[in-house]
Amino acid sequence: MDLARYHRLRPAYYRLEGQRCTSCQAVQFPARTTCRICRARTLEPHRLSGRGTVYSHAEVGQAPRGFASPYLVALVQLDEGLLVTAQLTDVDPEDVVIGLPVEMVTRRIQEHGPQGYLVYGYKFRPILRRRKAS
């Protein structure tokens, strides 16, 4: 990924930042000039929850240049209702099912950028069981 592109994608890649429409309250990702629902331009930055469930999933056997297969990819339906495309991580392929609860984590998403730097961004993993507060 080119450096300038990576730079401008930081809000989305690091914080899963999309937009909320102050006219109709719809949330969208990625950012656009108009609301995808009501076409209003009254949009403000909005950080998505990063929690949701697997809507569909696949295993990539033949990777594009810059990636090493095999790895898992998914459409994740966030709690807000919208879908995000991402890799799955920290999970075995046989444990992935539609409906699996997942959460966003920050991971290396490209092994080798053309200029030698690593590209980090969001992936999703099964929600870890938290220890109950005593």
Binding site: M1, Y55, S56, H57, A58, E59, V60, Q62, A63, P64, F67, Y71, V73, A74, L75, T85, A86, Q87, I98, I109, Q110, V119, G121
Partner: peptide
């Protein structure tokens, strides 16, 4: 999509699974 490792086949696979 592409920058996250999505191949053309993988996107079709997501549709087919769903």
């Amino acid at each position: 999509e592409a920058s996250h490792g999505m191949s053309f086949v993988a996107l079709s696979a997501l549709l087919m699974r769903r």
